[in-house]
Amino acid sequence: MVMLEHSGQFLYADLVSGGANRPIWSRKQIEQVIGYILVAPLLCWMLVVLIYPIFSLLALSLTNTRIIGAPASFIAAENYVATLQSAPFWASVARSLVWLLGNIFLGTVVALAAALLLRQSWLLARHARVWILLPWVIPTVAVSVIWQWMLNTNYGVINIALQHLAITSAPLNIFGSRQLAMVGVIVANTWHWFPLSAVVMFGAMHNIPADLYEAAQIDGANSWQQFRHITLPSIEKVLFALGLVGGLWTLNVFDTIYLITRGGPSDATQTLPVLIYDTAFKGQRIGLAAAMSVVAICLLAALATLYARIAAPKEE
C-alpha cells in the first residue's frame, strides 16, 4: 500500500512535469485508436471489393472491352448511347418493373397474412415464428428445383391439381410460355423470400403494446378496425423500410430467375440483372454491360428516391 501510494505520487509528479511516465493518450483516445483498428478490416474490405469496383465500373463503361483482360480502347459515351437506344434494354427495364411489382404485391400480402398468424400466442404460432423461415434457408438452386418440379408440365403436382379441379383442361407449360413464365418465377421467388418479411413484420407487430388493443376493445373496435387503426399505423415505418429494402433486393435478384428459366423462354423473364449478365458473359461485351449497369444503378436510385418521396410515413 505504501509502495502503491508512492508510485501514485510519482505518477502525479510526472503528470505535472510532463515526465516520462505521463500518459500520452487519454482513455478516450486509446478507445478511438483501438476502435479504428477494429473497424479497419471491414472498411478496407468494403472499400476494395465494393467501392473501388463502382469506380472501375464507370471506367469500363467507357471502353469497348469485350473480354476481361483483353486490350480495349476508350470509346467515350458510345456504350451509353447504345444502351439508351437499345430496345432489349428498355424491354428488360419494363420486365424488371413487372417483376418488382409482382413480387412486392404477392410478397407483401402473403407476408402480412403470415405475420398476423405468427402473432397468435399458442404453441404452434410460437414455433412457427422460427420455422417459417425454412423456405428462406433453402439454397436458391434447391428452390429452383422445387418449383420446376411443382410447376412441371407433365408431372407437376400443381398442373395435375388444376386439371383435377377442372380449372384447366390441358396441362400448362408454365416455364415454356412467354406470359406464364414470369408468373412462375414470381411465385418461386415470393415463396423463397416472404418468410423474411413475415418475421420482420411480426417483430414490428410484437412491439405494439397490448394495452392499445385492450383500450380499443373497450372502445368497441372490431377486429378489422383494430387492424386498420392500430396494427397498420404501428407497422407503417417497418412496411416502408421493407418496401425499400425488399424492392431493391428484388430488383437485384438474379439467381432465382437464371436457375429456373435462364431468362427465357426467349427473353420473357430477362430482367435487368439477367440481361447484364448475358451481355457481359454470353455476348462478351463487358464494356456495354458496364454501361448498362451504370444506367441501371441510376434508374434504381431514381426509383428509390421517388418511392421515399411518395411513401415515406409522415413524421409527427
Binding site: 501510494e5 501514485g8 505520487q9 505518477l11 502525479y12 503528470l15 505535472v16 500518459p23 487519454s26 482513455r27 478516450k28 486509446i30
Partner: peptide, 20 residues
C-alpha cells in the same frame, strides 16, 4: 466522463487524465 477543465484528485493524486 472526461472533465473539460479543472482538477480532480484522489488521495492527493491528480486523476484528470487517468482511466477509471
Amino acid at each position: 466522463e472526461e472533465i473539460t477543465s479543472g482538477e480532480i484528485s484522489i488521495g492527493g493524486r491528480a486523476v484528470n487524465r487517468l482511466a477509471p
